[in-house]
């Protein structure tokens, strides 16, 4: 699969990154979308049969229907030759994978906004399941956009998903033990994301992505570690609560977590 210059009526400008079973491209949107931006991101994934396409668009539609200001905006989806693709807004600020451009309170605020977006998904019955720094995008104005539902699926489904390795450090170990995904597991992932963004450390240090079996084993055998030495007490306490094995100890909703974080970021939302 190489980078042809076009897919459907999108003109692909630049490859951005590989991620979650597909590749992202910067693209010029077709006029029919009527957008007031000159760049969008198109994710191209390997195609499949029509059942796969139906499932693919269905997940995207579910996500798009939620329409929260801190969820990445999706435009359309389709298939072209043997590939599936969908287009979404371009966030030129990158992601929290590299949060250097944001100061401490900016980072906390970004995670708080991602938490509000996750809450909106939860209210619509969707578990995100793949919240991690690389999935919290930063817009030109500094606001955050929670991206790509990745593995998100309807909360009603009790199928266990297959998580890609990159995110194992942000997955609630309870999920690996066979627990079901829900608000508490996304709250966990938000807190693990915040920990990484503020300290550059994972709550499970030293997971080797090249050895997923060992990584899963590590996560199952050890409790997560909160680096209190690198964090302010108030934030550390919130993260610890969110990572608690007992889900009753966690903030009950992602929105509750966002409210707690707003109290720490030294400011309200922009």
């Amino acid at each position: 699969m190489q980078d042809a210059g076009r897919i459907a009526d999108y003109e692909l400008v630049d490859p951005l990154a590989d991620g979650g079973h597909g590749r992202f491209h910067l693209a010029v949107p077709p006029a029919r979308l009527g957008l007031d931006v000159d760049r969008v991101v198109v994710k191209v994934v390997a195609g499949g049969d029509d059942t796969a396409f139906r499932r693919f668009t269905r997940e995207l539609k579910l996500f798009a229907r939620v329409a929260h200001p801190n969820l990445v905006r999706l435009y359309d989806a389709g298939q072209h030759e043997d590939r599936f693709f969908y287009s979404m807004e371009w966030c030129p600020g990158g992601s929290l994978e590299d949060p250097a451009a944001l100061d401490r309170s900016g980072r906390i605020r970004a995670v708080a906004q991602a938490a509000r977006a996750a809450h909106a998904l939860h209210e619509s019955g969707i578990v995100h399941r793949d919240i991690r720094p690389g999935n919290v995008l930063v817009r030109a104005d500094g606001s955050a956009a929670l991206a790509d539902l990745g593995l998100a699926q309807l909360g009603s489904s009790s199928m266990t998903s297959m998580a890609p390795m990159a995110s194992i450090g942000f997955v609630d170990p309870e999920l690996l033990r066979g627990g079901s995904a829900g608000r508490p597991t996304d709250v966990y992932a938000l807190a693990a994301t915040l920990h990484r963004v503020l300290t550059a450390q994972d709550v499970f240090a030293g997971l080797d992505p090249a050895d997923p079996m060992l990584a899963v084993r590590t996560v199952l055998r050890r409790p997560p570690t909160v680096r209190r030495d690198l964090l302010d007490d108030d934030v550390a306490a919130i993260i610890e609560a969110c990572l608690d094995v007992a889900v009753e100890a966690r903030p009950p909703t992602a929105e509750a977590l966002a409210d707690l974080l707003d109290g720490c970021s030294g400011g309200t939302e922009p």
Binding site: R58, R65, E123, G125, G182, V247, E248, P252
Partner: peptide, 13 residues
């Protein structure tokens, strides 16, 4: 073909 919106359950605090 989309199911109706139904919030996820909240763990009782």
């Amino acid at each position: 073909d989309l199911p109706p919106v139904e919030p996820l359950p909240v763990v009782a605090a």
